[in-house]
């Protein structure tokens, strides 16, 4: 059994989860629960795909994907932050909207296939036998996913702005009283979440399966949401979780190759079942969740005057 191809597919399956979860981590740390990750990913996926088909440029496609994620996140931000709407309901609306919008735009793109993004060639490093393939033979989004989770981890725990963002998420009234603009911080955090979800969607339609299919995210947005809980709102654990789930997702492709005969539906179920099991495992320690979860999460901020 050759492990290298397995390891390579794990990386491709984990990258979209890691990208989306990184964005949601920042959003939730600022005290906003955006359940619309799935919708933002779908919009990012179709926008990136459409841009790639019409311009042929990978870079433009990635940017278009990411910023269309920002655009739909902006709708969520206006509704929940300015119009004080319920975050759970608005997040669900965002997902329903994203599914519909992407399917409508995508109806013109069904059946078109695309050259996947090129692998970055990092000089000599990429030619080292196994390590070269494993570490240095990927496309730009894979490296970006590593870079972003590192940056976000550093930002949240080591910088002053990160501290302010966490303060807003822990107690918006206190942060407001200290003179920080809760709304500004939250707007930026939600838009960043949209940006990362857009990137995650772009990765799916540009690299993972370089074609468009309705609902192609297949619940990955929801798994990314669960990952944030799984990682108890910490960057390192979220990265670990993303790779764990990437591995579980990819198992179905390899199990058949290893001669194990299980109906494909049961293998496809694995990531969803694993999400439930992992959530149960993590959440059963109520204290752990209470200590780590941002205290203002999901609550409407109405500025006192």
């Amino acid at each position: 059994m050759d492990l290298l191809p397995v390891a390579l597919t794990i990386i491709t399956a984990s990258t979209p989860l890691l990208l989306a979860a990184t964005g949601e981590l920042v959003t939730e740390k600022a005290g906003v629960l955006n359940l619309g990750v799935e919708g933002m990913m779908l919009v990012g996926a179709i926008a990136a795909f459409a841009a790639a088909v019409s311009t042929g440029s990978g870079l433009i496609a990635i940017l278009v994907g990411a910023f269309s994620g920002v655009a739909v996140a902006a709708i969520f931000a206006v509704l929940t932050l300015t119009c004080l709407a319920n975050q759970v309901a608005t997040g669900l609306a965002l997902t329903i909207f994203g599914v519909g919008l992407s399917a409508l735009v995508g109806s013109n793109f069904v059946g078109i296939s695309l050259e996947p993004l090129p692998q970055l060639n990092i000089g000599v490093l990429s030619t080292i036998p196994i390590l070269g393939d494993l570490l240095f033979g990927h496309d730009v989004l894979v490296y970006l996913s590593f870079l972003m989770i590192l940056l976000v981890g550093y930002f949240l725990s080591k910088t002053r702005s990160g501290l302010i963002l966490r303060a807003v998420g822990e107690s918006h009234d206190s942060a407001h009283a200290l003179g920080y603009s809760v709304l500004t911080v939250r707007y930026l955090a939600v838009l960043f979440g949209g940006f990362m979800s857009g990137l995650a969607g772009s990765y799916l339609s540009l690299v993972y399966t370089p074609l468009w299919a309705e609902n192609m995210t297949a619940g990955r947005g929801w798994i990314a949401l669960a990952l944030v809980v799984f990682g108890t709102w910490r960057a390192g654990r979220i990265a670990f979780g993303a790779y764990l789930f990437g591995a579980i997702t990819i198992l179905q492709l390899h199990v058949q190759g290893w001669g194990i005969n299980i109906a494909s539906q049961f293998m496809t179920m694995l990531p969803y079942l694993a999400t439930v099991i992992v959530l149960v495992f993590i959440s059963s320690d109520k204290m752990k969740i209470r200590i780590n979860a941002p205290q203002s999460i999901g609550k409407v901020f109405y500025p006192p005057r």
Binding site: I75, A85, A89, L92, I96, F97, G98, L101, L104, S107
Partner: peptide, 22 residues
């Protein structure tokens, strides 16, 4: 018309509803 228009309408309706509910 593409069938997906229905889903889009449903999403938009919920958005407007939540905005008006303020």
């Amino acid at each position: 018309l593409p069938a997906a228009v229905t889903g889009l309408f449903q999403g938009i309706l919920l958005f407007f509803l939540l905005a008006c509910d303020v």
